[in-house]
C-alpha cells in the first residue's frame, strides 16, 4: 500500500476526494445538457411527425435494446459493489467487481454492434443504404438520423468509461486505492452510472414510443 499525499492545493485527502466528486457532478450537468439538446430535437420532430416516427421506429431491434438495458443496469450494480469493496479494503473483490463491470460494458458494445449490423441489413442507415418506406415519408429518415447520432455518441461515452475502468484496475494493482482514499473510483462510478442513465432515456425514445 502506498500512502498518498494530497496535491498542493488541498489541505487534506478528503477535501481532494470531495472536490473530485463535485467536479464529476458538474461535468455530468454539462453532459446532461449535451444529450438533452439531442433528445430535445428528437421530441420536436417526434411531435411534428408522430405517425412517421412510429412507423420508422418499428424497425428498431427491440431485443437488442432491452438486453442492453439489463446489461447496463447490472453493470451499475457491480460498479457499486466494487466501490463498496474498495471502502472495505477487499482488494480481490474490488478487482473482480471491476472486471465484471468491464465485462458487462463489453457485452453491451457487442450487442450494439450486432444491432447496427441488423439495422444495415434492414436498410435503415441514413446516407449509406437508407430506403424510405412509403408510410415513413417524408420524415422517417430523421428518426434514424437521431438513432445514428445518439447511439454511437452513447457508445463512445461507454468506451471512455471502459478505458477509465481499465485505468482503475491498473491503480488497484499499483495499490493506491485504499479505504482511506478511493475517490477516483467513486468518480468513475458516477460517470459510469451517468452513461447507464443516458441509455435509460434513449431506450424508450428509440424502442418503445409508438410501438404498441
Amino acid at each position: 500500500m502506498r500512502s498518498l499525499q494530497p496535491e498542493i492545493q488541498y489541505a487534506t485527502l478528503s477535501q481532494q476526494g470531495e472536490t473530485a466528486q463535485l467536479g464529476m457532478w458538474v461535468f455530468i450537468a454539462t453532459e446532461t445538457l449535451f444529450f438533452g439538446a439531442l433528445i430535445f430535437t428528437y421530441f420536436i420532430y417526434r411531435d411534428a411527425y408522430p405517425k412517421e416516427f412510429a412507423e420508422a421506429g418499428k424497425d428498431a431491434v427491440l431485443w437488442c435494446g432491452s438486453v442492453n438495458v439489463g446489461l447496463l443496469l447490472t453493470s451499475s450494480l457491480t460498479m457499486v459493489l466494487a466501490i463498496d469493496a474498495a471502502a472495505d479494503g477487499r482488494r480481490r473483490h474490488l478487482k473482480n467487481w471491476l472486471l465484471a463491470t468491464a465485462g458487462l460494458g463489453i457485452a453491451f458494445v457487442c450487442v450494439k454492434g450486432v444491432e447496427w449490423c441488423l439495422d444495415l441489413a434492414h436498410h435503415d442507415v441514413p446516407s449509406i443504404n437508407f430506403i424510405m418506406k412509403p408510410a415513413e415519408a417524408p420524415a422517417g429518415e430523421l428518426f434514424w438520423v437521431f438513432y445514428f447520432i445518439a447511439t454511437p455518441l452513447h457508445a463512445l461515452h461507454l468506451l471512455i468509461g471502459l478505458g477509465l475502468i481499465l485505468y482503475m484496475l491498473w491503480r488497484v494493482r499499483r495499490g493506491d486505492l485504499t479505504p482511506a482514499y478511493y475517490a477516483p473510483l467513486e468518480v468513475v462510478g458516477l460517470y459510469w452510472s451517468f452513461v447507464d442513465t443516458v441509455w435509460i432515456f434513449l431506450y424508450p425514445c428509440i424502442y418503445l414510443v409508438g410501438r404498441s
Binding site: F34, A37, T41, Y45
Partner: peptide, 27 residues
C-alpha cells in the same frame, strides 16, 4: 454543451448528406 450538439448536427448534416434542418426532408 447545447452549442456543441448544434454544430455537431450541422456538421453531420453536411457530412452525411441527411436533412436534419432541411425543410424538404422534414427538418
Amino acid at each position: 454543451p447545447v452549442l456543441a450538439m448544434t454544430v455537431l448536427l450541422v456538421a453531420m448534416e453536411r457530412f452525411m448528406g441527411v436533412g436534419i434542418f432541411d425543410p424538404a426532408r422534414g427538418g
